[in-house]
């Protein structure tokens, strides 16, 4: 395992701050009706899980997730400009304005996309992992899973398939407490979701504090090594979504709970860690924050200045035409 050093921590801080700014900006733009549509699921509050997990990968490894995908895309290195352009439905977006918030993807970053059908991407993760094994590579797939998806058939079938085929998949449950509006305890007979690993005979790597990027990085790094050499692993990260399920959500009153989670906000947790371990770090953090705020503003400007897709875009890529 790579020693966690200051540049790594600062890079994680940068990514987490970028994600938070990006999501805050999306929220504003949605209210201004510059981002439209009925679906937008923000990653605010979950930054440590996405950033810590993605940091444990090599560039040749693969990442796939569900519809709450902005943070994962940015952590994997997607340019905020093309991400924001996709949010605004512009042809300069990563998916040409045809995918929208839930369908960010970047082939060059081995980020295989956000997927909008709950659980739908899980067998895709297994298939991508199969290619790695099939061709004798040792690349792994990191597949994020919402807690809600653990109750649908895709989870059962895909995780079981990864077990019987020994596929190199790190199954990472982002347990943010709710599947849409339904609490995990109401939806799951076994609310300790990592224990499902036992049912499939795969490695159970337990629960991790999803608010702490260092903890997430450490456990996912071990999981990635295990998956590379042996087979599938299941981890459960405990975290929280600040902005509810999505923009079409009916608002529900969970202010007390929200305040509790904000006490252990992932960005604050990392700030504390940095300040404890390094002297005079505050100015460096401020510089990072200024740079990332500027990056998000530049992304918005880029997206606003970009063209909308055309009729040719509407009818292209229905099929591969050679």
């Amino acid at each position: 395992m790579a020693e966690i050093d200051k540049p790594m921590l600062l890079e994680w801080y940068r990514q987490m701050f970028l994600i938070r700014q990006f999501e805050n900006q999306c929220d504003v733009l949605y209210k201004e009706k510059k981002i439209t549509g009925v679906y937008m699921h923000l990653y605010s509050g979950l930054e440590a899980t996405g950033v810590g997990a993605v940091a444990a990968l090599r560039p040749s490894d693969h990442v796939i997730t569900a519809y709450r995908d902005h943070g994962i895309a940015l952590a994997r290195g997607m340019d905020p400009k093309v991400a924001m352009a996709e949010m605004m439905g512009k042809r300069t977006g990563c998916s040409g304005g045809k995918g929208g918030s839930m369908h960010l993807a970047s082939r060059e970053h081995n980020f295989w996309g956000g997927y909008a059908i709950v659980g739908g991407h899980l067998p895709l993760a297994a298939g991508i992992a199969l290619e790695s094994r099939y061709n004798g590579k040792d690349d792994v797939v990191l597949s994020f899973i919402g807690d809600g998806a653990t109750n649908n058939g895709y989870f059962h079938e895909a995780v079981n398939l990864s077990a019987v085929w020994d596929l190199p998949v790190v199954w990472l449950i982002e347990n943010n407490g709710y599947g849409m509006g339904t609490p995990v305890e109401v939806a799951s007979g076994q609310p300790e979701l990592h224990k499902r690993a036992v049912a499939y005979g795969i490695k159970d790597m337990g629960r991790v504090d999803g608010q702490n990027v260092v903890d997430v990085y450490n456990v996912v790094t071990k999981a990635v090594e295990y998956a590379r050499k042996k087979g599938p692993v299941l981890i459960e990260s405990l975290t929280y979504r600040y902005k509810g399920h999505g923009v079409s959500d009916r608002s529900y009153d969970k202010l007390a709970e929200l305040r509790d989670w904000q006490q252990k906000d992932p960005i604050l947790v990392l700030q504390d860690y940095l300040c404890k371990h390094f002297e005079c770090i505050e100015e460096e953090l401020k510089d990072i924050e200024r740079a990332e705020m500027a990056a998000v503003h530049a992304a918005v400007e880029f997206a606003e200045d970009s063209e909308a897709p055309t009729y040719d875009d509407l009818i292209s890529h229905v099929y591969v035409e050679e």
Partner: peptide
């Protein structure tokens, strides 16, 4: 579900 879905992933890769 997994047969068809894993085929999709393998094909994408």
């Amino acid at each position: 579900m997994a047969i068809a879905g894993a085929a999709v992933g393998a094909a994408m890769a």
